Simulated scan of single mutants.
Amino acid sequence: MIDLHLHLILNKKAGSGNGLKISKKITTRLKQLNIIYHTYTTDYQGHAMAITKKLLTDTLLPWKNESSDKTTPFPLLVVVGGDGTLHEVINALANNFDIPLGYIPAGSGNDFARGVNLSQEPLTALNHLLTCEKPQRFNLLHYHNHLTNQERWVNNNVGIGIDAAIVSQANHSRLKKLLNMCHLGSMSYLLAASSVIFKQKGFPLTVEFDGKKIDYPNALLCTTTNHPYFGGGLALDPLANPQEANMSLIVVDYQPPYRLIGLAVKLLRQTHFTSPNVHHYRMTELKLSSSTAQFGQADGEELGQAPLKLTFSTNERFFWL
């Protein structure tokens, strides 16, 4: 077993407070095992990114095969939080793909954990992490918005349209803070969805890949992903694999709210690709553009509302999972 010095970024507010319970379980177990660790607790949005950037300057090291021969423990960064915390850390690490990253899911959705077949039981995930002998490679999405020059790494998916509008409305809801305090944070998204579903209009979307150009004059949803899960466990693309370079694009045509109920049932049954209003593609590079202002989200983080001109690619990074 590799001798590790764990550097734990703890988001105790993750999962409507579930992160606090999981953090206690993890640190208690590490004490019992006499594992060396340091903790860094996030206090605000963006704090995980700041902590990671500091650790990059003085602590973290790239993985090399000969690391196991070192006399000092290998410094391993581990995120204990949800998909949003993981998103911050991955973007702070940026192109340092050879610095391995551990993860113990503590959020409400935990789609990344599902996508890489990582246990959502914290002590099981910890035990697996401690018994790993070397990191493994998983692909991340990368996008560049040419209109704003913004770039991000994405561990789950990028959504344009109704899902992003729901994220935006939920995040700005006065009820969200209260619901989080009651450990009912997911209710804010259900309430937002019940409102947005009647307001969202179709939008023009242009898709380019493999020399093809496809125009959708009336899209409702456009999601780019490289693993199956979306929205807290919904298998948007059941065959997507983060260990492959291919990414998946799913475009849904605008439909009135009453038809969306039937589509939601198909999604739950994983038969949504049989719908003529659902379009599914696989590719290694992708361009998306919309001339009208649309909401966007990446791993549940808001991208604002603006016209879009995005290019996507994938790249492997080391994960200690």
Rank of each mutant, 00 (worst) to 15 (best):
187 M>K: 15
83 D>F: 04
161 G>Q: 05
138 F>A: 09
99 I>Q: 01
127 N>I: 00
171 N>E: 12
115 G>D: 06
184 L>Q: 15
148 T>A: 00
89 V>I: 08
140 L>T: 13
181 M>G: 13
67 S>H: 09
124 T>V: 13
128 H>C: 01
95 N>Y: 09
185 G>Q: 12
108 S>K: 07
173 S>T: 11
108 S>T: 13
145 N>K: 02
172 H>E: 10
177 K>E: 12
130 L>T: 04
167 V>K: 10
92 A>G: 05
181 M>L: 14
187 M>I: 15
172 H>S: 11
172 H>N: 14
96 N>G: 06
136 Q>R: 09
115 G>E: 00
64 K>S: 11
81 G>N: 04
119 S>I: 05
152 R>E: 13
132 C>Q: 12
179 L>F: 13
151 E>I: 13
101 L>Y: 03
193 A>S: 15
122 P>M: 05
73 P>E: 02
68 S>A: 10
140 L>I: 13
66 E>I: 12
157 N>D: 05
113 A>G: 02
165 A>T: 10
168 S>T: 08
161 G>H: 07
100 P>R: 02
162 I>E: 11
154 V>F: 01
134 K>M: 02
157 N>V: 07
103 Y>P: 00
62 P>L: 12
74 F>P: 02
103 Y>H: 02
75 P>M: 07
142 H>Q: 14
130 L>R: 03
144 H>K: 10
106 A>W: 06
103 Y>D: 00
162 I>S: 04
154 V>Q: 05
